[in-house]
Design a protein around this nucleic acid. Structure first.
Lengths: 338, 338
DNA sequence: GAAAGTAGGCGAAACGATTCGACTCGCTAC
DNA sequence: GTAGCGAGTCGAATCGTTTCGCCTACTTTC
């Protein structure tokens, strides 16, 4: 069921069929219709491999996701889903690669075998081997998150520093004087994970500027860790009346620990974070949070990448998302000191 | 950077390079090493499109996931992740397609363009157009879930009927006499979604056999729906003392509504469900549930599919997962009637 | 009415791999 | 001494497209 068969049955040459399909040269309306009729009847679609070979492009994008030993966060999940749909809208296929490093098997397969026209990389570290690898290969890519020197590359990112700054300001405005930051895990920070570093910096700056006292805690990405982390905070820093966090996965545990400690939210304790909107709304009370626009981000990443694929010499585009804080029900005035 | 370049630089023909790489014919150790040295130096990897064209197979699997307007459940997410890793282990690439129907663009692209050697289909309906389409095309596939007549096809599924049966039995053993089933959404049931239908049947059979009273409620896949659903149950059926559910996403709302109604779990009310283990453990108290083995399922699906791709004439394999119920802290003896 | 242009079509050469048949050695067996 | 065989290699065909150059008619233009 190839183009030759279509050509034979419609009594024209293979090239005519090709031109009828692509429209790159004139084909008389009569033959075009004849060809189309045969194609419809036989349900022909050009073979992707042959086309890729000839054209030198695969019409496929790659999405490099972190291997799931560490579970995906809701934000990441939403992002993956939105990339999938954006690629679909652009009539591009999406190849998934679970890789953290440039030597991982699937990364090697996809990049070495030239299976994709461009790549979207998630979970970028400040110093990321995949980025340097791809730069050497002149394979277009967009990173979600920035490396330490992001000037020449194409990226989108969430401005965690500013978001945490806003959370701190919001809490300080409400009268809180002792605020804790629940960051991501210590390993993640040690591995140079940008958002965790930038949240840390934003927090330090904000508490300094507002003259409030801030303490930072690292916390693994799950509810149990969130629970023990809050217990630890309450024990070591009983003066703390508000928490801000970028650790989505810890939220259920944070909430539970506060509840168990009898600290009603928001009357006795406030929580303000950065999270996917859906996730923030699952909480009780619903979480005052900067809603990370994962869906927009996915669409933007695909847009940037497509642009880069079609015109590799265009200056790389970059976008920093700074979503506003949605005021919900988890923050309130600081309780009167006892 | 193609095989011809490698051949030129190592002073042999292209075919010799190919044989040196594949080992399908003898190549003297000396030339093999010479070729390998050139390859290592230049970092050559065979072009996937050319290879696919010649070999007639793409070394790629397709995973058809439901479009995300309706959000993926945790179980589905875990499944996708595990398929991704299993494919990677088998040295196969994974193409993602967000399609519900056989006419969806990406389904058409992937299937029509012969981009994959086989497909894994999620969210199978009892009567699914994609299945009939693929059967006509002789393209290997594995379904997650079964159609109404699954005899000739290759599938894996979770035995929701039996699991709900076990939940009901567990609750009945604890003395509960009025049990509610919180099923998935009414639309899903109307569209012929197997798990929801089979849960319904399993529930009906089990309550009949145990002689307890059962009521079934449909519920959309989110916390808010779960909350109102429980409120409705408590209003319309105040005699109910236990809930069983396959609706993962509703769990936070179920829990919250019971809490707000002052019904302590498990002292005053019991909940037993079917859920991803991680999700079940996030609850408070942790949920007594049949832990759906999403990771095993992903690996099995890939195994079955690979087997079918390599030997299309082998009888199609099938597997019904019946995970045991993990007793956690959300079920207890029925409260004494007031 | 010849030159020039255009619409419509065809054939063949790519793209980069794999694989089949054929060829040349050197060795063994009779 | 020659037939047979296996190891090692090469050339050419092939997979299914796209695209370039060329060719033929037919129209237009002066």
């Amino acid at each position: 069921m190839n183009i030759g068969e279509i050509a034979r049955r419609s009594g024209v040459s293979r090239s005519t069929v090709s031109y009828a399909l692509s429209g790159k040269r004139a084909v008389s309306e009569a033959t075009r219709q004849r060809i189309q009729a045969v194609i419809d009847e036989l349900g022909y679609r050009p073979n992707a491999a042959a086309r890729a070979l000839k054209e030198g492009r695969t019409r496929t994008l790659g999405l490099v996701v972190p291997p799931t030993r560490r579970r995906l966060t809701f934000m990441q999940l939403e992002f993956v889903a939105s990339v999938m749909e954006a690629a679909d809208r652009a009539d591009l296929d999406l190849l998934l690669s679970p890789s953290r490093d440039d030597h991982d098997r699937s990364f090697e397969r996809i990049v070495g075998g030239r299976r994709v026209d461009g790549l979207i990389l998630m979970e970028i570290r400040l110093d990321d081997p995949r980025v340097t690898r791809l730069q050497g290969l002149r394979l277009p890519f967009v990173t979600i998150g920035r490396t330490a020197r992001p000037q020449g590359t194409c990226w989108i990112d969430v401005d965690y520093a500013t978001l945490i700054d806003r959370c701190v300001n919001h809490l300080a405005d409400l009268g809180h004087r002792h605020i804790a930051l629940i960051n991501r895990s210590a390993e993640l920070i040690a591995s140079g994970y940008g958002p965790a570093h930038r949240a840390r910096e934003g927090f330090a700056d904000a508490v300094a500027r507002r003259g409030v006292e801030g303490v930072e805690f690292c916390c693994a990405d799950d509810a149990a860790a969130g629970e023990t982390c809050v217990q630890e905070i309450l024990r070591a820093h009983p003066e703390v009346t508000a928490i801000t966090t970028i650790n989505e996965a810890a939220l259920p545990g944070i909430q539970r620990a506060l509840e168990d400690a009898g600290l009603n939210i928001p009357a006795r304790f406030s929580v303000a974070g950065v999270a996917a909107r859906y996730w923030a709304e699952q909480f009780h009370p619903q979480l005052t949070a900067a809603d990370v626009p994962a869906v927009d981000m996915g669409a933007t990443a695909v847009d940037f990448l497509v642009e880069r694929v079609t015109d590799p010499d265009a200056p790389p585009r970059q976008h920093l998302f700074v979503p506003p804080i949605s005021l919900r029900n988890s923050t309130g005035p600081a309780p009167a000191p006892r």
